[in-house]
Amino acid sequence: MEVTTLARRATWTGGAVQERLRRLNLITTVPPLAFVGVLLVVLTARTWWHVVLQVVGLAAALATAERWTAGDFIRVARPCVAITAVVWLAGAMTDDSSSFYGLCVVGSFTIPPLPRHRIAALLGLGVLVAALGSTNLLVHSGHGVGRLLQFVVIPAVSVVVSTAFTFVSQRFYDLVAELEQSRDREAELAVIRERMRFASDLHDIQGHTLHVVKLKVALAEKLLRSDVDRAQEELKEVHTLVGDTIVQTKELAYAQRRLNLSAELENAKNLFEAAGIHVRVDREAEVDARAGELLGQVLRETTTNILRHAQAKQVRITLAESGITIVNDGAPEDGQPELNGLATLRQRLADNGGELKVDRQDGRFLTAAAFPRREDVR
């Protein structure tokens, strides 16, 4: 349930963030462009033909900008470039110097997202704007330098400058998108970690129970002929243990499971004694409550490992304020001392500021889990 909630939350958050980014781009991009376009129409249009040209160019520019904010402008960019180029050509020939505005906006949105050859595309766009504007010099005579600046130099430079600003805006948008993708990946990793934690806890419950049941059933079989009453007691304990495991599995599924270190200690002691292993428990201090649950998991996993892998005769458990140490004999000499369950617990302890050590020497296996004391942290 918790894993599913995390996954849904990650998906919903990612979609909501993308929608907020799109709205933010719409607010910061489209209204200013529309305001400038309308202002140019009001201030520079001298005939109805100029009004039509500038409105058509502005509409193409706003359509490109709106699709750019949605990340889906490629299919409208090319026709809009063609439309605004025709508008600028017609404006240059009819002496309307503001008609280049639409082509300037469309080009500035089209070039930055290109995968390569952006500089070449920008130079090409500048040359196109200058070439289309130069038709004004062919149609209209007089004021040669002024017309050159008004219809060739200023539009070409404006295209380059506006594209540079759009490129910076695009890079900022890309960085924000990458940040959101990183957050999405972190959410996915959190889901994976939660699944691993759930699998580890389920392994602790089911694996531990199955090995204990196997031990007690074997013991009951031995006692059937010599001590029937004791065999019945062992079978009753198996029944109780299976029932407790069912309850713990339900608690785990609903994220309600909590380990009690004292109960785990008593359980480990009973299991070792039932297996004929001498166990000694030293309580040097009461364990810090914040670490008790994780230490209980370490004790449970270690108990299972000893019963499964060791031919132990003696086990010593030492509890300190911030940790637990379990030492057993009968450890096999071959193989690696690192066990999968303990490896998972090592990472879990590290995530909570603790440390887990395992060591094997001269047939003795040591498992030690510790958390720093609060005064040490200060």
Rank of each mutant, 00 (worst) to 15 (best):
L219E: 00
A220H: 03
K222H: 08
K222V: 04
R225F: 03
S226F: 05
R230M: 12
E233F: 01
L235H: 03
K236H: 09
H239P: 03
G243N: 04
D244L: 09
T245D: 12
I246R: 15
Q248A: 15
T249M: 13
K250P: 02
K250I: 13
E251G: 03
L252W: 08
Q256I: 07
R258Q: 04
R258Y: 05
A263G: 04
A263Q: 05
E264Q: 00
L265A: 10
L265M: 13
A268Q: 05
K269T: 14
K269F: 09
F272I: 00
A274C: 04
A275R: 02
G276S: 04
I277H: 01
I277S: 00
V279W: 03
R280P: 14
D282C: 06
V287W: 07
A291I: 04
E293G: 08
E293Q: 11
V298R: 15
L299W: 04
I306A: 12
R308G: 02
H309K: 08
Q311H: 11
A312C: 06
A312E: 10
K313Q: 10
V315D: 03
R316G: 11
I317M: 04
I317A: 04
T318N: 06
L319P: 02
E321K: 12
S322Q: 06
S322R: 01
G323R: 11
T325L: 08
